[in-house]
Nucleic acid binder design. Structure first.
Lengths: 229, 229
DNA sequence: GGGAGTTCGTGAATGTGTGCACGAGCGCGT
DNA sequence: ACGCGCTCGTGCACACATTCACGAACTCCC
């Protein structure tokens, strides 16, 4: 009955597990068991998908009964590495950085903001969400002794690569990037990118497609110098 | 030579087009042509993928030369429906709503913030990013005559469904949801969700996996009441 | 104890996305 | 005019993801 070396979990499943976890955590205290059907409904996905996703955990449900909520929560948290907190450091104390630091949702879900840094001396010293902003040059000191492996880049596009380099230099191996730029990082460092404008542009595509779509717009015949940059 | 009814573009491609567009727009003025290889490098993806993506546009590159930047920009913008601005309305003037409204990146890329509403009377009347916050009950008036079809939900989880219902009621058909909740909306309304905590949890999974991973943690033998909710 | 009803786990089928490899077309230099 | 080198467009094979369908296992009730 020894732990089998855990199989790799498909990326698509990993992306859904946090959602299941949130739903399970928010359940009414009395609910101790839950069927895949019900969970699927709450998560807005297909029941078979839920079962397949959960089957990767090795965590067994009980046929005829469903999944035991507490046990399932435990298993998902374990698989996602949420058995302990992951302190994060935010680079960039502008609009976005401040909003992120103030936003309670991070700490609540196990990602306390352990530090904020910025390059701008004016920002240094400000206290945001209970954390004092320090200078980016002091990043090493901010990180030291705190085992911070996740960094959040909330700078503008121009400063983002520099921010990434600094983070990597102090040993950060996972980066959440809000700047609209492609970062280049060494192998072994994970980057996830969130670009708000991209999300809106995807919505725009569907909107445009919905509304009549191709009205046979005449493309610029002489193709040079035609589109607005 | 009439416009063929435009084929459906795969979702994965749609998600990459905005990235290509950004890269192309930021190119040095002198660059009038670009190879798929170079674009792939800048976007951090495979060159074949770039070519396949662009082939859906019907926009032709020139063999031996590459793609004409201006023409390509025009084609992508057209396909994404970015030939005109898409004013957005933000629901929720808290931390996140304020940051979004102040964040220049929206207007810059064709999504001006045309209105902000909140339910909290204290927030109503505040001016954020040049826009006065109005009461959520006035949403219809805010939207009227402005052909707003995109809404952004920046409320907490508890208020998100109400926000969605209000948006749908005034004719919004695309929603960008920042609240950690699954929204239910009528068919025909698109929803995209951005959950910062989920992104961090995905990073956490990879971190955890990197570092030794399964240490044969003993699962709770008596499974009831064992995991911290 | 046995049958009815429920729900999991998973094989197989289908759909979507990725990447290679190569033919076809274009420009340039001679 | 012709050949060479470059780069696009795409067929094909493979990988990944989703969904269906069904046997297996469990509970409950009589």
């Amino acid at each position: 009955m020894s732990e089998r070396p855990r199989r790799r979990i498909p990326e698509a499943t990993v992306a859904r597990l946090p959602e299941y976890l949130r739903i399970l955590s928010e359940l009414d205290e009395g609910t101790d068991h839950l069927s895949s059907d019900r969970l699927a409904e709450l998560a807005g996905v297909n029941a078979a998908k839920v079962r397949k996703d959960l089957s990767y955990l090795g965590s067994y449900g009980t046929r005829g009964v469903g999944y035991e909520v507490a046990y399932l929560v435990y298993q998902i948290r374990r698989e996602l590495g949420l058995t302990h907190d992951w302190p994060v450091v935010i680079v960039g104390a502008g609009n976005l950085g401040q909003a992120l630091a103030n936003y309670g949702g991070f700490s609540d879900r196990g990602f306390p903001v352990a530090g904020i840094v910025d390059i701008d001396p004016v920002k240094v010293g400000m206290v945001i969400g209970g954390v004092r902003v320090r200078h980016a040059d002091d990043l090493a000191a901010v990180v030291r002794g705190r085992s911070i492996s996740i960094g959040v880049i909330a700078t503008g596009a121009a400063a983002a690569q520099d921010a990434a380099d600094r983070l990597v230099a102090v040993g950060v191996t996972s980066i959440l990037n809000f700047a609209p730029t492609v970062l280049s990082v060494p192998r072994g460092v994970s980057v996830r990118k969130v670009d708000l404008a991209v999300e809106l542009q995807i919505l725009s595509y569907h909107e445009q497609r919905r509304s009549g779509a191709s009205l046979t717009i005449v493309p610029p015949a002489d193709s040079s110098r035609s589109a607005t940059a």
